[in-house]
């Protein structure tokens, strides 16, 4: 299966499960969950350094940037200006040109402000960023994002942290047919079957955080997600049988008494 690599903007990824690093009990748990998940892309946020308590540990002491692709996000940004500012800061902090671009529309749903997203993506792409946009399950917006130069799109399954699973499978399928770049289903996954389903539909990867970090046993859920994404991908490649209303016997009639 590891020949089945995901390639985005010339970068190869072994894992089709990408994970966030928020909401864990501590860094040790974060590291363990990521290890068990098998993910090789991890998202991080950019925030002020705690200057009053320097004893606080640094996340990147626990997650080796040589081993993982660190994908900084612009989480918490509600304007084009803020998102662009955070993306530039992330790059200045020296990981890479990659950014998971989020421009959020509203605090209650955390749905993307897709107009702002496109505007911010244009600015950042012009500055040489590799922009992976967190977007709605809207095929038209996905196409626009690809047209302006995004090498992948990250449509949501459901609101961030909601655990609702895929709310609009038909739109996701249309997105997969509409754009020719990798689709990473991002946000809203609740449990393993949601992730498997996303992959069975033909998603190229799934990104999640809360579904693992918020589980009663995050390490066990990380493992479940690894298998779910793997199984879903295999099933997609294998090609499922069509749905039919009536039965088709699997044992031959011939030779019966």
């Amino acid at each position: 299966m590891y020949d089945d690599r995901l390639v985005i903007a010339g970068r190869e990824f072994k894992s089709r499960l990408w994970v966030g690093t928020g909401k864990y009990k501590d860094f040790a748990e974060t590291r363990k969950a990521i290890e068990v998940s098998g993910a090789d892309v991890v998202t991080v946020a950019v925030r002020r350094v705690n200057i009053t308590d320097r004893s606080k540990e640094n996340l990147l002491d626990f997650i080796d940037p040589k081993k993982y692709t660190i994908l900084p996000n612009t989480a918490g940004c509600y304007t084009v200006e803020d998102a662009v500012r955070y993306a530039r800061l992330a790059r200045a902090a020296g990981v890479s040109d990659l950014v998971k671009l989020e421009v959020l529309g509203d605090e209650k749903t955390l749905f993307p402000d897709t107009a702002g997203l496109i505007e911010a993506a244009k600015i950042l792409i012009k500055e040489g960023f590799i922009v992976l946009p967190y977007t709605n399950d809207d095929p038209i917006v996905a196409k626009k994002l690809v047209d302006i130069g995004c090498p992948a799109v990250m449509p949501l399954a459901a609101p961030i942290g909601s655990g609702l699973g895929i709310r609009n499978p038909y739109n996701l399928k249309i997105i997969m047919e509409t754009v020719k770049v990798p689709i990473i289903v991002d946000a809203g996954v609740g449990t393993a079957s949601d992730a498997a389903l996303a992959m069975e539909y033909g998603a190229d990867a799934v990104l999640m955080n809360t579904a693992i970090a918020g589980a009663k046993d995050p390490i066990a859920m990380a493992e479940a997600m690894k298998y779910a994404v793997h199984a879903g991908r295999l099933a997609y490649k294998a090609g499922r049988i069509p749905r039919k209303l009536y039965a088709t016997a699997s044992s031959p009639i011939e030779g019966m008494l």
């Binding site: 994970v19 966030g20 690093t21 928020g22 909401k23 864990y24 860094f27 974060t30 998202t43 991080v44 946020a45 950019v46 925030r47 002020r48 350094v49 200057i51 640094n58 996340l59 990147l60 660190i70 900084p72 996000n73 989480a75 918490g76 800061l89 992330a90 902090a93 990981v95 989020e102 959020l104 955390l110 967190y134 961030i160 942290g161 946000a187 990104l207 999640m208 955080n209 809360t210 970090a213």
Partner: peptide, 13 residues
């Protein structure tokens, strides 16, 4: 302003 990376998925930290 001095910033660094912290744990995050979305709206993290």
């Amino acid at each position: 302003e001095i910033l660094s990376f912290i744990g995050g998925g979305s709206l993290a930290g």
